[in-house]
Design a protein around this nucleic acid. Sequence first.
DNA 1: TTTAAAACCTGCTATTTATCAGTTTTTCTA
DNA 2: TAGAAAAACTGATAAATAGCAGGTTTTAAA
Lengths: 234, 234
Amino acid sequence: MASCFQCENSNCLIKKNSLDGRIDAFLNKKHTVRCKKSQQFIMEGTPAHGLFFAYKGKVKVVKTGVDDREQIVRFAKDGEIIGHRGGFGSSKYYSISAQALEDTTLCYFSQDDLKDILLSIPNLTFDFMLFYADELSESETRVRKLAQMSVRERVIDTLLYMDAKFGSSNQLLNITLSRKDYADYSGTTEEQVIRIVSALKKEGVVKATGRKLGIINHKALSEEIAKHTFSQVG
Amino acid sequence: MASCFQCENSNCLIKKNSLDGRIDAFLNKKHTVRCKKSQQFIMEGTPAHGLFFAYKGKVKVVKTGVDDREQIVRFAKDGEIIGHRGGFGSSKYYSISAQALEDTTLCYFSQDDLKDILLSIPNLTFDFMLFYADELSESETRVRKLAQMSVRERVIDTLLYMDAKFGSSNQLLNITLSRKDYADYSGTTEEQVIRIVSALKKEGVVKATGRKLGIINHKALSEEIAKHTFSQVG
DNA sequence: TTTAAAACCTGCTATTTATCAGTTTTTCTA
DNA sequence: TAGAAAAACTGATAAATAGCAGGTTTTAAA
Protein backbone atom coordinates (compact mmCIF):
# COMPACT_ATOMS: atom_id res chain seq x y z
CA MET A 1 0.00 0.00 0.00
CA ALA A 2 1.16 3.47 -0.91
CA SER A 3 2.05 5.26 2.31
CA CYS A 4 1.50 8.99 2.67
CA PHE A 5 4.55 9.16 4.89
CA GLN A 6 6.99 8.34 2.11
CA CYS A 7 4.88 9.80 -0.71
CA GLU A 8 6.65 12.48 -2.72
CA ASN A 9 3.60 14.15 -4.22
CA SER A 10 4.07 17.48 -2.49
CA ASN A 11 1.13 18.92 -4.41
CA CYS A 12 -1.26 16.36 -2.88
CA LEU A 13 -3.72 18.04 -0.53
CA ILE A 14 -3.68 15.07 1.84
CA LYS A 15 0.09 14.92 1.92
CA LYS A 16 0.30 18.65 2.60
CA ASN A 17 -1.89 18.26 5.67
CA SER A 18 -0.54 14.89 6.82
CA LEU A 19 1.52 16.41 9.62
CA ASP A 20 -1.66 17.25 11.48
CA GLY A 21 -2.00 14.50 14.07
CA ARG A 22 -5.77 14.23 13.67
CA ILE A 23 -5.31 12.84 10.18
CA ASP A 24 -3.50 9.63 11.13
CA ALA A 25 -6.52 7.46 11.79
CA PHE A 26 -7.99 8.69 8.56
CA LEU A 27 -4.92 7.74 6.55
CA ASN A 28 -5.26 4.17 7.72
CA LYS A 29 -8.58 3.98 5.94
CA LYS A 30 -6.98 4.75 2.61
CA HIS A 31 -7.17 2.13 -0.12
CA THR A 32 -4.69 1.63 -2.89
CA VAL A 33 -5.96 0.70 -6.35
CA ARG A 34 -3.83 -0.37 -9.28
CA CYS A 35 -5.04 0.29 -12.80
CA LYS A 36 -3.76 -1.09 -16.07
CA LYS A 37 -3.39 1.16 -19.08
CA SER A 38 -6.77 1.92 -20.74
CA GLN A 39 -8.67 0.72 -17.69
CA GLN A 40 -11.71 2.74 -16.72
CA PHE A 41 -12.05 3.16 -12.96
CA ILE A 42 -14.86 5.73 -12.72
CA MET A 43 -17.99 5.44 -14.82
CA GLU A 44 -20.20 8.46 -15.33
CA GLY A 45 -23.62 8.10 -13.77
CA THR A 46 -22.74 5.38 -11.27
CA PRO A 47 -23.16 6.04 -7.53
CA ALA A 48 -20.25 8.02 -6.12
CA HIS A 49 -18.90 6.45 -2.97
CA GLY A 50 -15.58 8.20 -2.79
CA LEU A 51 -12.75 10.07 -4.35
CA PHE A 52 -9.42 9.12 -5.93
CA PHE A 53 -5.97 10.65 -5.95
CA ALA A 54 -3.47 9.73 -8.63
CA TYR A 55 -0.47 8.36 -6.73
CA LYS A 56 1.59 7.62 -9.81
CA GLY A 57 0.37 7.68 -13.40
CA LYS A 58 -1.71 9.61 -15.89
CA VAL A 59 -5.47 9.78 -16.22
CA LYS A 60 -8.02 11.32 -18.57
CA VAL A 61 -11.33 12.60 -17.24
CA VAL A 62 -14.20 12.41 -19.68
CA LYS A 63 -17.79 13.51 -20.07
CA THR A 64 -19.89 11.29 -22.30
CA GLY A 65 -21.49 13.03 -25.24
CA VAL A 66 -23.74 12.14 -28.15
CA ASP A 67 -23.13 8.92 -30.08
CA ASP A 68 -19.59 7.71 -29.48
CA ARG A 69 -18.30 11.20 -29.02
CA GLU A 70 -16.72 12.07 -25.73
CA GLN A 71 -15.35 15.27 -24.27
CA ILE A 72 -12.13 15.11 -22.29
CA VAL A 73 -12.57 17.75 -19.60
CA ARG A 74 -9.29 17.34 -17.75
CA PHE A 75 -6.10 15.34 -17.35
CA ALA A 76 -4.64 14.27 -14.01
CA LYS A 77 -1.19 13.22 -12.92
CA ASP A 78 0.62 12.38 -9.67
CA GLY A 79 -0.96 13.97 -6.61
CA GLU A 80 -4.10 15.23 -8.33
CA ILE A 81 -7.72 14.57 -7.43
CA ILE A 82 -10.05 12.55 -9.64
CA GLY A 83 -13.79 12.15 -9.12
CA HIS A 84 -14.05 15.61 -7.66
CA ARG A 85 -17.46 15.57 -6.19
CA GLY A 86 -17.00 11.98 -5.05
CA GLY A 87 -20.09 11.78 -2.96
CA PHE A 88 -20.05 15.03 -1.03
CA GLY A 89 -21.31 17.24 -3.80
CA SER A 90 -25.03 17.75 -4.24
CA SER A 91 -25.14 14.81 -6.60
CA LYS A 92 -24.74 11.24 -5.48
CA TYR A 93 -23.45 10.13 -8.86
CA TYR A 94 -20.18 10.63 -10.67
CA SER A 95 -20.55 13.34 -13.26
CA ILE A 96 -17.52 12.10 -15.21
CA SER A 97 -15.71 8.96 -16.28
CA ALA A 98 -12.01 8.39 -15.67
CA GLN A 99 -9.59 6.18 -17.55
CA ALA A 100 -5.91 5.42 -16.96
CA LEU A 101 -3.65 6.49 -19.84
CA GLU A 102 -0.82 4.30 -18.56
CA ASP A 103 -0.42 1.86 -15.65
CA THR A 104 -1.53 3.97 -12.72
CA THR A 105 -1.67 3.64 -8.94
CA LEU A 106 -4.54 5.39 -7.19
CA CYS A 107 -5.33 6.28 -3.60
CA TYR A 108 -8.98 5.99 -2.64
CA PHE A 109 -10.96 7.51 0.22
CA SER A 110 -14.62 6.89 0.96
CA GLN A 111 -16.90 9.90 1.06
CA ASP A 112 -17.85 9.30 4.68
CA ASP A 113 -14.26 9.16 5.90
CA LEU A 114 -13.38 12.18 3.85
CA LYS A 115 -16.30 14.24 5.05
CA ASP A 116 -15.42 13.48 8.67
CA ILE A 117 -11.83 14.51 8.29
CA LEU A 118 -12.68 17.62 6.29
CA LEU A 119 -15.05 18.86 8.94
CA SER A 120 -12.45 18.35 11.63
CA ILE A 121 -9.44 19.94 9.92
CA PRO A 122 -10.36 23.40 8.66
CA ASN A 123 -7.05 23.87 6.87
CA LEU A 124 -7.65 20.77 4.82
CA THR A 125 -11.15 21.87 3.88
CA PHE A 126 -9.78 25.27 3.02
CA ASP A 127 -7.20 23.68 0.72
CA PHE A 128 -9.91 21.62 -0.95
CA MET A 129 -11.95 24.76 -1.41
CA LEU A 130 -9.02 26.56 -3.02
CA PHE A 131 -8.40 23.60 -5.26
CA TYR A 132 -11.96 23.62 -6.55
CA ALA A 133 -11.92 27.39 -6.95
CA ASP A 134 -8.78 27.17 -9.07
CA GLU A 135 -10.16 24.30 -11.12
CA LEU A 136 -13.31 26.32 -11.68
CA SER A 137 -11.34 29.26 -12.93
CA GLU A 138 -9.41 27.03 -15.31
CA SER A 139 -12.59 25.44 -16.55
CA GLU A 140 -14.08 28.85 -17.23
CA THR A 141 -11.01 29.82 -19.20
CA ARG A 142 -11.55 26.66 -21.20
CA VAL A 143 -15.16 27.65 -21.87
CA ARG A 144 -13.94 30.91 -23.31
CA LYS A 145 -11.29 29.25 -25.43
CA LEU A 146 -13.67 26.68 -26.85
CA ALA A 147 -16.09 29.43 -27.75
CA GLN A 148 -13.61 31.86 -29.26
CA MET A 149 -10.59 30.05 -30.64
CA SER A 150 -10.45 28.51 -34.10
CA VAL A 151 -9.82 24.78 -34.40
CA ARG A 152 -6.19 25.34 -35.29
CA GLU A 153 -5.74 27.61 -32.29
CA ARG A 154 -7.38 25.07 -29.99
CA VAL A 155 -5.09 22.30 -31.19
CA ILE A 156 -2.03 24.50 -30.65
CA ASP A 157 -3.34 25.47 -27.21
CA THR A 158 -3.76 21.78 -26.39
CA LEU A 159 -0.21 20.96 -27.43
CA LEU A 160 1.14 23.74 -25.23
CA TYR A 161 -1.06 22.58 -22.36
CA MET A 162 0.33 19.05 -22.62
CA ASP A 163 3.85 20.41 -22.56
CA ALA A 164 3.09 22.56 -19.52
CA LYS A 165 1.31 19.76 -17.68
CA PHE A 166 3.38 16.68 -18.49
CA GLY A 167 6.60 18.19 -19.77
CA SER A 168 8.84 17.03 -22.60
CA SER A 169 12.03 14.98 -22.95
CA ASN A 170 14.22 15.36 -26.05
CA GLN A 171 11.58 17.59 -27.58
CA LEU A 172 8.94 14.87 -27.19
CA LEU A 173 5.88 15.24 -24.94
CA ASN A 174 5.93 12.99 -21.88
CA ILE A 175 2.46 11.74 -22.69
CA THR A 176 1.15 9.60 -25.51
CA LEU A 177 -2.31 10.37 -26.77
CA SER A 178 -4.13 9.33 -29.91
CA ARG A 179 -5.17 11.98 -32.42
CA LYS A 180 -8.71 11.17 -31.30
CA ASP A 181 -7.77 12.10 -27.71
CA TYR A 182 -6.37 15.41 -28.87
CA ALA A 183 -9.61 15.97 -30.77
CA ASP A 184 -11.75 15.05 -27.78
CA TYR A 185 -9.90 17.57 -25.67
CA SER A 186 -9.72 20.31 -28.32
CA GLY A 187 -13.37 20.00 -29.23
CA THR A 188 -12.96 18.96 -32.85
CA THR A 189 -12.60 15.83 -34.97
CA GLU A 190 -9.76 13.39 -35.42
CA GLU A 191 -9.28 14.44 -39.06
CA GLN A 192 -8.88 18.09 -38.16
CA VAL A 193 -6.23 17.28 -35.58
CA ILE A 194 -4.39 15.14 -38.13
CA ARG A 195 -4.53 17.88 -40.74
CA ILE A 196 -3.36 20.58 -38.34
CA VAL A 197 -0.57 18.49 -36.84
CA SER A 198 0.57 17.67 -40.39
CA ALA A 199 0.61 21.34 -41.24
CA LEU A 200 2.57 22.17 -38.07
CA LYS A 201 5.09 19.49 -39.00
CA LYS A 202 5.54 21.00 -42.47
CA GLU A 203 6.01 24.39 -40.84
CA GLY A 204 8.76 22.87 -38.72
CA VAL A 205 7.28 23.82 -35.35
CA VAL A 206 6.12 20.34 -34.31
CA LYS A 207 7.56 16.91 -34.87
CA ALA A 208 6.17 13.40 -34.62
CA THR A 209 7.92 10.08 -34.22
CA GLY A 210 5.26 7.48 -34.60
CA ARG A 211 2.41 8.35 -32.31
CA LYS A 212 4.42 10.63 -30.09
CA LEU A 213 4.32 14.38 -30.68
CA GLY A 214 6.96 16.95 -29.81
CA ILE A 215 7.20 20.71 -29.83
CA ILE A 216 10.17 22.09 -31.76
CA ASN A 217 9.35 25.79 -31.75
CA HIS A 218 7.51 26.64 -28.57
CA LYS A 219 7.73 30.35 -29.20
CA ALA A 220 6.06 30.18 -32.59
CA LEU A 221 3.14 28.24 -31.15
CA SER A 222 2.72 30.56 -28.18
CA GLU A 223 2.77 33.60 -30.39
CA GLU A 224 0.08 32.26 -32.66
CA ILE A 225 -2.37 32.05 -29.76
CA ALA A 226 -1.00 35.00 -27.78
CA LYS A 227 -3.95 37.24 -28.51
CA HIS A 228 -6.20 34.81 -26.61
CA THR A 229 -3.99 34.51 -23.58
CA PHE A 230 -3.12 38.12 -22.77
CA SER A 231 -4.76 38.63 -19.42
CA GLN A 232 -4.30 35.09 -18.28
CA VAL A 233 -3.42 34.20 -14.74
CA GLY A 234 -1.50 31.07 -13.82
CA MET B 1 -27.20 48.22 5.06
CA ALA B 2 -28.61 44.82 4.10
CA SER B 3 -28.81 42.77 7.28
CA CYS B 4 -28.22 39.02 7.19
CA PHE B 5 -30.75 38.64 9.99
CA GLN B 6 -33.70 39.66 7.87
CA CYS B 7 -32.26 38.48 4.55
CA GLU B 8 -34.43 35.95 2.72
CA ASN B 9 -31.78 34.45 0.48
CA SER B 10 -31.90 30.98 1.98
CA ASN B 11 -29.45 29.75 -0.63
CA CYS B 12 -26.77 32.18 0.57
CA LEU B 13 -23.88 30.33 2.18
CA ILE B 14 -23.39 33.08 4.76
CA LYS B 15 -27.07 33.20 5.65
CA LYS B 16 -27.15 29.41 6.05
CA ASN B 17 -24.35 29.57 8.59
CA SER B 18 -25.39 32.79 10.27
CA LEU B 19 -26.83 31.03 13.33
CA ASP B 20 -23.33 30.06 14.39
CA GLY B 21 -22.42 32.58 17.07
CA ARG B 22 -18.84 32.90 15.91
CA ILE B 23 -20.00 34.59 12.72
CA ASP B 24 -21.55 37.69 14.32
CA ALA B 25 -18.43 39.82 14.51
CA PHE B 26 -17.71 38.90 10.93
CA LEU B 27 -21.13 39.98 9.72
CA ASN B 28 -20.51 43.46 11.12
CA LYS B 29 -17.65 43.84 8.68
CA LYS B 30 -19.92 43.34 5.73
CA HIS B 31 -20.30 46.19 3.25
CA THR B 32 -23.30 46.90 1.12
CA VAL B 33 -22.80 48.11 -2.43
CA ARG B 34 -25.49 49.42 -4.75
CA CYS B 35 -25.06 49.09 -8.49
CA LYS B 36 -27.00 50.73 -11.29
CA LYS B 37 -28.02 48.75 -14.34
CA SER B 38 -25.08 48.17 -16.72
CA GLN B 39 -22.57 49.12 -14.05
CA GLN B 40 -19.42 47.05 -13.94
CA PHE B 41 -18.27 46.31 -10.37
CA ILE B 42 -15.51 43.77 -10.97
CA MET B 43 -12.90 44.26 -13.66
CA GLU B 44 -10.86 41.32 -14.88
CA GLY B 45 -7.19 41.60 -14.08
CA THR B 46 -7.51 44.07 -11.21
CA PRO B 47 -6.30 43.11 -7.71
CA ALA B 48 -8.86 40.97 -5.90
CA HIS B 49 -9.48 42.25 -2.40
CA GLY B 50 -12.71 40.48 -1.66
CA LEU B 51 -15.83 38.70 -2.74
CA PHE B 52 -19.40 39.74 -3.50
CA PHE B 53 -22.78 38.18 -2.92
CA ALA B 54 -25.79 39.31 -4.92
CA TYR B 55 -28.29 40.48 -2.33
CA LYS B 56 -30.95 41.46 -4.81
CA GLY B 57 -30.54 41.72 -8.57
CA LYS B 58 -29.06 40.03 -11.59
CA VAL B 59 -25.46 39.93 -12.75
CA LYS B 60 -23.49 38.63 -15.70
CA VAL B 61 -19.99 37.28 -15.22
CA VAL B 62 -17.71 37.71 -18.20
CA LYS B 63 -14.28 36.69 -19.42
CA THR B 64 -12.70 39.09 -21.86
CA GLY B 65 -11.76 37.64 -25.20
CA VAL B 66 -10.18 38.80 -28.43
CA ASP B 67 -11.17 42.16 -29.91
CA ASP B 68 -14.50 43.28 -28.51
CA ARG B 69 -15.69 39.74 -28.07
CA GLU B 70 -16.53 38.59 -24.59
CA GLN B 71 -17.58 35.26 -23.15
CA ILE B 72 -20.30 35.21 -20.52
CA VAL B 73 -19.32 32.37 -18.24
CA ARG B 74 -22.12 32.56 -15.71
CA PHE B 75 -25.12 34.50 -14.45
CA ALA B 76 -25.82 35.26 -10.80
CA LYS B 77 -28.96 36.18 -8.91
CA ASP B 78 -30.03 36.73 -5.29
CA GLY B 79 -27.85 34.90 -2.79
CA GLU B 80 -25.16 33.82 -5.24
CA ILE B 81 -21.42 34.42 -5.08
CA ILE B 82 -19.59 36.65 -7.55
CA GLY B 83 -15.83 37.03 -7.82
CA HIS B 84 -15.28 33.47 -6.73
CA ARG B 85 -11.65 33.43 -6.03
CA GLY B 86 -11.83 36.89 -4.55
CA GLY B 87 -8.37 36.95 -3.10
CA PHE B 88 -8.03 33.56 -1.49
CA GLY B 89 -7.39 31.61 -4.67
CA SER B 90 -3.86 31.17 -5.94
CA SER B 91 -4.24 34.32 -8.00
CA LYS B 92 -4.37 37.77 -6.51
CA TYR B 93 -6.33 39.13 -9.44
CA TYR B 94 -9.90 38.77 -10.53
CA SER B 95 -10.13 36.30 -13.38
CA ILE B 96 -13.49 37.67 -14.53
CA SER B 97 -15.46 40.86 -14.91
CA ALA B 98 -18.94 41.34 -13.47
CA GLN B 99 -21.70 43.68 -14.59
CA ALA B 100 -25.16 44.35 -13.17
CA LEU B 101 -27.98 43.50 -15.59
CA GLU B 102 -30.45 45.56 -13.54
CA ASP B 103 -30.20 47.73 -10.43
CA THR B 104 -28.50 45.38 -7.98
CA THR B 105 -27.56 45.39 -4.31
CA LEU B 106 -24.40 43.52 -3.37
CA CYS B 107 -22.86 42.33 -0.12
CA TYR B 108 -19.09 42.57 0.06
CA PHE B 109 -16.55 40.83 2.29
CA SER B 110 -12.81 41.42 2.27
CA GLN B 111 -10.58 38.44 1.63
CA ASP B 112 -8.89 38.74 5.02
CA ASP B 113 -12.13 38.73 6.98
CA LEU B 114 -13.46 35.89 4.90
CA LYS B 115 -10.37 33.77 5.26
CA ASP B 116 -10.46 34.20 9.05
CA ILE B 117 -14.04 33.16 9.34
CA LEU B 118 -13.68 30.25 6.94
CA LEU B 119 -10.80 28.80 8.91
CA SER B 120 -12.75 29.04 12.14
CA ILE B 121 -16.08 27.59 10.97
CA PRO B 122 -15.48 24.25 9.22
CA ASN B 123 -19.10 23.89 8.17
CA LEU B 124 -18.93 27.18 6.32
CA THR B 125 -15.72 26.22 4.55
CA PHE B 126 -17.27 22.88 3.71
CA ASP B 127 -20.27 24.64 2.17
CA PHE B 128 -17.96 26.86 0.15
CA MET B 129 -16.10 23.80 -1.02
CA LEU B 130 -19.33 22.12 -2.11
CA PHE B 131 -20.39 25.26 -3.89
CA TYR B 132 -17.18 25.38 -5.92
CA ALA B 133 -17.36 21.66 -6.62
CA ASP B 134 -20.87 22.04 -7.99
CA GLU B 135 -19.93 25.09 -10.04
CA LEU B 136 -17.00 23.14 -11.44
CA SER B 137 -19.21 20.30 -12.48
CA GLU B 138 -21.58 22.72 -14.19
CA SER B 139 -18.72 24.43 -15.93
CA GLU B 140 -17.44 21.11 -17.22
CA THR B 141 -20.87 20.29 -18.57
CA ARG B 142 -20.73 23.61 -20.35
CA VAL B 143 -17.36 22.72 -21.85
CA ARG B 144 -18.90 19.58 -23.28
CA LYS B 145 -21.92 21.40 -24.63
CA LEU B 146 -19.88 24.11 -26.31
CA ALA B 147 -17.73 21.46 -27.95
CA GLN B 148 -20.50 19.15 -29.10
CA MET B 149 -23.73 21.06 -29.65
CA SER B 150 -24.58 22.89 -32.86
CA VAL B 151 -25.23 26.61 -32.69
CA ARG B 152 -28.98 26.10 -32.80
CA GLU B 153 -28.79 23.59 -29.99
CA ARG B 154 -26.67 25.91 -27.89
CA VAL B 155 -29.14 28.75 -28.32
CA ILE B 156 -32.03 26.49 -27.33
CA ASP B 157 -30.02 25.24 -24.35
CA THR B 158 -29.41 28.83 -23.32
CA LEU B 159 -33.10 29.72 -23.50
CA LEU B 160 -33.98 26.74 -21.31
CA TYR B 161 -31.21 27.67 -18.90
CA MET B 162 -32.57 31.20 -18.53
CA ASP B 163 -36.02 29.80 -17.84
CA ALA B 164 -34.63 27.40 -15.23
CA LYS B 165 -32.49 30.05 -13.58
CA PHE B 166 -34.65 33.15 -13.65
CA GLY B 167 -38.09 31.74 -14.34
CA SER B 168 -40.88 33.13 -16.51
CA SER B 169 -44.04 35.17 -16.01
CA ASN B 170 -46.83 35.04 -18.59
CA GLN B 171 -44.59 32.98 -20.83
CA LEU B 172 -41.91 35.67 -20.78
CA LEU B 173 -38.47 35.14 -19.29
CA ASN B 174 -37.84 37.12 -16.09
CA ILE B 175 -34.61 38.46 -17.51
CA THR B 176 -33.91 40.84 -20.35
CA LEU B 177 -30.81 40.23 -22.39
CA SER B 178 -29.69 41.56 -25.74
CA ARG B 179 -29.22 39.14 -28.61
CA LYS B 180 -25.53 39.89 -28.22
CA ASP B 181 -25.69 38.65 -24.60
CA TYR B 182 -27.35 35.43 -25.73
CA ALA B 183 -24.59 35.07 -28.31
CA ASP B 184 -21.84 35.74 -25.78
CA TYR B 185 -23.22 33.03 -23.55
CA SER B 186 -23.99 30.53 -26.32
CA GLY B 187 -20.62 30.96 -27.98
CA THR B 188 -21.79 32.31 -31.31
CA THR B 189 -22.57 35.60 -33.02
CA GLU B 190 -25.42 38.03 -32.64
CA GLU B 191 -26.66 37.32 -36.15
CA GLN B 192 -26.89 33.60 -35.54
CA VAL B 193 -28.93 34.15 -32.40
CA ILE B 194 -31.25 36.48 -34.29
CA ARG B 195 -31.71 33.98 -37.12
CA ILE B 196 -32.34 31.08 -34.76
CA VAL B 197 -34.75 32.99 -32.53
CA SER B 198 -36.61 34.12 -35.67
CA ALA B 199 -36.87 30.52 -36.81
CA LEU B 200 -38.11 29.41 -33.38
CA LYS B 201 -40.74 32.14 -33.50
CA LYS B 202 -41.94 30.94 -36.90
CA GLU B 203 -42.08 27.41 -35.51
CA GLY B 204 -44.30 28.71 -32.73
CA VAL B 205 -42.14 27.48 -29.85
CA VAL B 206 -40.76 30.86 -28.79
CA LYS B 207 -42.25 34.33 -28.72
CA ALA B 208 -40.81 37.80 -28.47
CA THR B 209 -42.37 41.07 -27.41
CA GLY B 210 -39.80 43.68 -28.18
CA ARG B 211 -36.54 42.64 -26.59
CA LYS B 212 -38.07 40.16 -24.20
CA LEU B 213 -38.16 36.50 -25.12
CA GLY B 214 -40.57 33.84 -23.94
CA ILE B 215 -40.85 30.09 -24.23
CA ILE B 216 -44.18 28.85 -25.59
CA ASN B 217 -43.42 25.18 -26.09
CA HIS B 218 -40.94 24.08 -23.44
CA LYS B 219 -41.32 20.42 -24.34
CA ALA B 220 -40.41 20.92 -27.99
CA LEU B 221 -37.23 22.76 -27.03
CA SER B 222 -36.21 20.18 -24.43
CA GLU B 223 -36.75 17.36 -26.85
CA GLU B 224 -34.59 18.92 -29.50
CA ILE B 225 -31.58 18.90 -27.20
CA ALA B 226 -32.52 15.78 -25.24
CA LYS B 227 -29.80 13.64 -26.76
CA HIS B 228 -27.20 15.93 -25.20
CA THR B 229 -28.69 15.95 -21.73
CA PHE B 230 -29.41 12.28 -21.07
CA SER B 231 -27.04 11.52 -18.23
CA GLN B 232 -27.26 14.93 -16.69
CA VAL B 233 -27.37 15.43 -12.98
CA GLY B 234 -29.02 18.37 -11.31
C1' DT C 1 7.76 -12.67 -37.51
C1' DT C 2 3.54 -12.69 -39.52
C1' DT C 3 -0.93 -10.88 -39.42
C1' DA C 4 -4.84 -8.37 -37.91
C1' DA C 5 -6.34 -4.38 -35.90
C1' DA C 6 -5.84 0.12 -34.79
C1' DA C 7 -4.26 4.48 -35.73
C1' DC C 8 -2.89 7.77 -38.99
C1' DC C 9 -3.31 10.26 -43.21
C1' DT C 10 -5.24 12.62 -47.63
C1' DG C 11 -8.31 14.66 -50.98
C1' DC C 12 -12.84 15.73 -52.01
C1' DT C 13 -17.32 17.39 -50.87
C1' DA C 14 -21.10 18.84 -47.99
C1' DT C 15 -22.50 21.43 -44.25
C1' DT C 16 -22.27 24.70 -40.88
C1' DT C 17 -21.09 28.98 -39.24
C1' DA C 18 -19.35 33.66 -39.62
C1' DT C 19 -18.96 38.00 -41.90
C1' DC C 20 -20.53 41.95 -44.33
C1' DA C 21 -23.62 45.44 -45.74
C1' DG C 22 -27.63 47.45 -45.41
C1' DT C 23 -32.66 48.03 -43.55
C1' DT C 24 -36.10 48.24 -40.06
C1' DT C 25 -37.62 48.43 -35.48
C1' DT C 26 -37.23 49.50 -30.73
C1' DT C 27 -35.52 52.06 -26.95
C1' DC C 28 -33.83 55.93 -24.65
C1' DT C 29 -33.31 60.67 -23.72
C1' DA C 30 -33.49 65.57 -24.41
C1' DT D 1 -42.85 63.12 -28.39
C1' DA D 2 -39.29 63.89 -31.68
C1' DG D 3 -34.90 62.56 -32.90
C1' DA D 4 -30.83 59.94 -32.21
C1' DA D 5 -28.81 55.88 -30.89
C1' DA D 6 -28.98 51.25 -30.08
C1' DA D 7 -30.64 46.95 -31.06
C1' DA D 8 -32.84 43.74 -34.06
C1' DC D 9 -33.21 41.84 -38.42
C1' DT D 10 -32.26 39.94 -43.43
C1' DG D 11 -30.00 38.19 -47.46
C1' DA D 12 -25.90 37.25 -49.89
C1' DT D 13 -21.41 35.55 -49.67
C1' DA D 14 -17.15 33.84 -47.74
C1' DA D 15 -14.77 31.06 -44.65
C1' DA D 16 -14.27 27.41 -41.50
C1' DT D 17 -15.23 22.95 -40.16
C1' DA D 18 -16.98 18.26 -40.50
C1' DG D 19 -17.86 14.00 -42.90
C1' DC D 20 -16.78 10.43 -46.06
C1' DA D 21 -14.10 7.11 -48.53
C1' DG D 22 -10.11 4.84 -49.30
C1' DG D 23 -5.21 4.29 -48.68
C1' DT D 24 -0.89 3.87 -45.71
C1' DT D 25 1.67 3.29 -41.64
C1' DT D 26 2.19 1.80 -36.96
C1' DT D 27 1.24 -1.11 -33.17
C1' DA D 28 0.23 -5.13 -30.71
C1' DA D 29 -0.68 -9.83 -30.34
C1' DA D 30 -0.58 -14.68 -31.95
